[in-house]
Simulated scan of single mutants.
Amino acid sequence: MMATVSSPARRRIDEIGDESRRRILDAAEELFAERGFDRTSFVDISERSGISRGSIPWHFKNKDGLVLAVVGRAIDRAMGPEHYETVPRLAEVLDEYANWLRSGNSALMFMILTEAMRSTGAVHTQYQEFLARRRKGVELWLRKQRPDGVDPTFATERERAFAVALNGAVTGIHLQALVDPDGIDLDAALQALASVFDKHVADVWAQPTPEKERTPGKGSGSRRSKSR
Score class of each variant (00 low, 15 high):
R135F: 07
E115V: 11
P88Q: 14
G80K: 13
N62H: 12
E47V: 09
I112M: 05
R77N: 10
F60L: 09
F60W: 07
P88I: 13
L131E: 15
S46N: 01
A91E: 15
I75N: 07
M109Y: 11
V67Y: 01
R89A: 12
G54V: 05
F130V: 12
V123P: 02
I75T: 10
D38G: 00
A132Q: 13
E82Y: 14
M117H: 03
D95R: 15
M79T: 11
A78S: 15
E159W: 11
A74V: 12
V87G: 08
V67G: 01
T114K: 09
G104P: 14
L68P: 02
G36M: 03
R158T: 10
V123G: 00
D44Q: 03
F60K: 07
L113C: 04
R102P: 05
E82G: 09
D64I: 07
A132P: 06
N105Y: 04
G80D: 08
E92R: 15
L66D: 03
S106L: 08
I45Q: 01
A155R: 10
D148H: 05
L66K: 03
S49W: 01
V164D: 05
F42N: 02
L101G: 01
G50H: 08
H83Q: 09
I45A: 00
L166Y: 08
R73F: 04
N99A: 13
K63V: 06
R143K: 11
R53F: 00
T120K: 12
E129G: 13
Y127A: 00
L90K: 08
A116K: 03
V67N: 02
F110I: 04
V87F: 14
E129Q: 14
I51L: 00
R160D: 09
K144L: 09
S103I: 12
F162G: 06
F162H: 14
K136Y: 04
H59E: 01
A116D: 04
L68S: 06
K63T: 02
D151A: 12
L140I: 14
E92A: 12
G121R: 11
F37T: 00
G168Y: 07
D44F: 00
S52Y: 06
G54T: 07
S106H: 12
